Simulated scan of single mutants.
Amino acid sequence: MYTIGQFSKIGKVSTKTLRYYDDIDLLKPIHVDSENQYRYYSDEQVLIILLISELKEYGLKLEEIKVVLDRQNAALLKEFLMNKIAEIDNEMQRNLKLRNLIQSKIIKIESGGNLMETQDLKVELKERETLTVASRRATTSMENISNVIGKVFEDIYHMNLQPSGPVMTVYYDKEFDVENADIEICIPIIKKVSTEKSDNLKEFMGGLTACTTFIGPYSKLGAAYAKVMKWIEENDYKNAGAPYDIYLNGPRTVNNPDQFITEVCFPVIK
């Protein structure tokens, strides 16, 4: 048998970690001396501690590792590892997008661009028509909005309908929460059925809106929001509903985020 000190060297983990593994029933010593409470480990446990350390390097959670060891289930381990690969792929895509944004910023700096970019945003009043839309409301992270949009397009397809306008996102939160945003995705459709026959169809009410058109990545839309909010205050209007974005183009049609065109709209009353 191995002492806890010897076993920590074998597994390249601290004795504190081994005691924690014991506490959570992940890896218990084969024997504990009743007099001095010294822990001892067996030859058979060497492969277990090495596997635990390996799976931790892959990024698996201790709870996942424990389930795999308890069940001795190779198929379950494969599922966890495939999920981890998907997480890594998503992270790589996010890092690639971030790299491209940083590279674009460097190019602008090298070409003599300003540290803080500004647009000559103009606010105008528009009387919006009421639209029939396919919609889904969700509390989700900002990164997941594209998945909600995809589900609305799936709804439109399954109902054998056709989109008739650009995607809109309505924001219901009073305070912005990037991880738990209360949003609604609405896509105008060519009306063929009654909205009363489907939970995913509704009338998107029109009315007076203060709007501005912003060109650039979604991460900088705050400038457009600030412009419209200031205009509303200076011109003695009041908010009359949740603001929404209209994506006049986007990632589906344009590769460069600097070319995204978004209309920011605030329902207002005098």
Rank of each mutant, 00 (worst) to 15 (best):
P166D: 04
F214P: 03
I156F: 15
K220E: 12
E35R: 14
L51F: 08
V152M: 08
L101S: 12
L60H: 06
K9D: 04
Q162L: 11
G113D: 00
G207M: 08
G206R: 10
S53P: 01
L96Q: 14
G250E: 03
P243C: 03
E203S: 14
V68H: 02
T253E: 02
D43T: 14
V193W: 05
K16C: 00
P251Q: 13
V264F: 07
A181K: 01
K192P: 00
K97A: 11
S146H: 11
L76M: 14
L27P: 09
V68Q: 02
N144P: 00
D173S: 11
V123N: 08
F153A: 00
R99D: 06
E143V: 09
Y21H: 05
Y171Q: 06
G165E: 01
I261C: 12
G59I: 01
K151I: 15
N90C: 03
P251M: 13
I85D: 12
T139C: 12
Y218S: 13
A224Q: 09
E87L: 07
Y247E: 02
G59H: 04
K174M: 11
V254Q: 08
K66Q: 12
S8V: 06
V46N: 04
S8L: 07
F7L: 06
T169Y: 00
E54N: 11
Y247G: 03
Q45E: 06
D23V: 00
Y38S: 09
L121A: 09
Y58D: 03
E154N: 05
D199Y: 12
L98C: 04
T169G: 06
L77S: 05
K61Y: 02
L51A: 04
A240H: 09
P166K: 04
T209E: 07
A240S: 15
D89A: 11
T195Y: 01
K126I: 08
N180K: 13
V193A: 13
G5R: 12
Y247L: 10
I189E: 07
M82I: 12
P188G: 14
V268T: 12
V193Y: 13
L50R: 14
S53C: 04
G112E: 04
N83S: 10
E234G: 00
M229F: 06
D43G: 10
I4Y: 05
A181L: 13
N114Y: 07
I48Q: 06
A242D: 01
Q162K: 14
N147F: 11
L50Y: 02
D236I: 02
G112P: 06
L77D: 00
E87W: 04
E184R: 07
Y38R: 13
L55A: 01
N255Y: 03
G59A: 05
P257E: 08
L208K: 14
E196L: 15
L55P: 00
M116W: 08
T213S: 14
G150T: 12
V170I: 15
H31I: 01
Y2N: 02
Y247W: 09
S194P: 02
E64S: 13
M205C: 07
L125E: 06
L18G: 02
S146C: 05
L76K: 07
I107R: 10
M205D: 10
D22F: 03
G241W: 04
S34T: 15
Y171S: 08
N200A: 09
N249V: 09
